[in-house]
Simulated scan of single mutants.
Amino acid sequence: MSTGIIIALCILVLIAYLFDITASKTRIPAVILLLLLGYAVKVVALTLDLPLPPLDPILPVLGTIGLILIVLEGALELQLDRTKFPFIRKSMLLALLPILGLSFTIAGAFYYFDECSFKDALSSAIPFAVISSAIAIPSARTLDKENRSFVTYESSFSDIFGVILFNFVTENDHIGTGTWGQFIWQILLILVISFVATLLLALFMNNIRHHIKFAPIIVIIILIYFVSKVYHLPALIFILLFGLFLENIDELQDYKFFKKFHPERFSTEVHKFKELTGEFAFLVRASFFILFGFLLERSEILNHATIAWAIGITATIFLFRGIFLKLFRLPLKPLVFMAPRGLITILLFLSIPASKQIAIANKSLVIQVIILCALVMMIGLMKNSNNETEHQTP
């Protein structure tokens, strides 16, 4: 049995890799194919009457580790200099403002049609408002450099802002002056922790000559994240700052302290670390979506009671996106299509306390919105690719 499981897992990873390398050609988001693959494995397992252990508890763990690695992978792609600050500020605002607008708009609809408190409605609405960097960043590989950088910044910031807002709403029964004071204190504390931990980890990476050093760094990063989570600190800020520091250490070499890192030599280590992080992120991301597809029920995908809600939420997502892109004078195509929902949506949905869950926002609705957003992105990227081909044809 164990041999069969190992063979099956190896085949699934290889199929996921095939999906990943062909995504730029087919324009089909890998998330759709991975979900279908997971569901197909379930059908085969049920047909063969194979005994399977309960897999539901693994999903949140995989999702959280995947989120950490994906945000870190994205941060390691972001190069900073003073000329990019306006660009970064714009991407931050375009990550934050739609989250706030969508969260309160969708929460208002939940509150109106469901017998629930507005706070519970808001807890269920936030997962739908967050762009999934796990899908957006890999899908942006087909875009030009500027649009790819924008999607990476925006989706990474969207994950961070979404998690911070979600935790703020779900972890505070009453929101008042004291709550805001505590929130500001948590932000300041994580910034201090990020500064100290980033320097220590960077020094460790630069000075350790043992042949194994990147795996312990990733483990320490995950450890810091989960310990911070215990104390309700927004730990994704640390992940983002750590990745930005590693990728942009050469921008600080004019300062005497940072010369100790020997930026020329350090950049080689960062490149190796970036490659390893990408490999880990791929494995965890693929495993997460395959497992989620495995746990899907056909009745959840084809739930007629939620399809109207799913279409309405999806339309609202892209309407808000188009409006904000216009307000910030950014090109609608192809950016308007780059608003997928995925890992972060699932992860936040699974994190909603049972006492705060509402009937409308169920698993079926989450699945349908994810699939619809992925289909819109797929169609948009295909049309964009066709337009570029036509322009290039003499």
Score class of each variant (00 low, 15 high):
residue 13 V to A: 12
residue 16 A to K: 01
residue 17 Y to M: 10
residue 19 F to V: 06
residue 21 I to G: 03
residue 31 V to C: 03
residue 47 T to F: 12
residue 53 P to T: 03
residue 60 P to C: 14
residue 60 P to V: 13
residue 63 G to I: 09
residue 70 I to W: 12
residue 78 L to Q: 09
residue 85 F to N: 00
residue 87 F to P: 00
residue 92 M to G: 12
residue 99 I to T: 07
residue 104 F to K: 01
residue 108 G to A: 07
residue 109 A to C: 09
residue 110 F to C: 00
residue 110 F to I: 00
residue 117 S to Y: 12
residue 123 S to W: 08
residue 125 A to Y: 00
residue 132 S to C: 02
residue 135 I to M: 06
residue 142 T to A: 15
residue 142 T to K: 15
residue 149 S to M: 15
residue 151 V to G: 11
residue 160 I to L: 11
residue 163 V to A: 09
residue 170 T to I: 15
residue 173 D to R: 07
residue 174 H to Q: 14
residue 177 T to D: 14
residue 180 W to Y: 13
residue 184 I to M: 14
residue 188 L to V: 10
residue 190 I to P: 01
residue 201 L to N: 09
residue 205 M to F: 14
residue 205 M to A: 13
residue 206 N to E: 11
residue 217 I to D: 04
residue 224 I to F: 13
residue 226 F to S: 13
residue 233 L to G: 09
residue 235 A to S: 13
residue 235 A to Y: 05
residue 240 L to T: 07
residue 240 L to F: 15
residue 240 L to P: 07
residue 240 L to A: 09
residue 244 L to T: 07
residue 246 L to D: 08
residue 247 E to D: 14
residue 253 Q to R: 15
residue 258 F to D: 09
residue 259 K to Q: 15
residue 259 K to P: 08
residue 261 F to K: 05
residue 282 F to T: 03
residue 283 L to D: 11
residue 287 S to N: 11
residue 289 F to R: 07
residue 289 F to S: 08
residue 296 L to T: 05
residue 301 I to S: 07
residue 305 A to K: 02
residue 307 I to F: 09
residue 311 I to D: 01
residue 314 T to Q: 00
residue 315 A to Q: 07
residue 316 T to M: 11
residue 323 I to T: 09
residue 324 F to N: 04
residue 328 F to T: 05
residue 330 L to A: 02
residue 335 L to N: 01
residue 338 M to S: 03
residue 342 G to F: 05
residue 350 L to G: 03
residue 351 S to T: 11
residue 357 Q to V: 00
residue 365 L to W: 03
residue 367 I to A: 04
residue 370 I to L: 15
residue 370 I to H: 06
residue 376 V to G: 04
residue 386 N to M: 13
residue 391 H to A: 10
residue 392 Q to M: 06
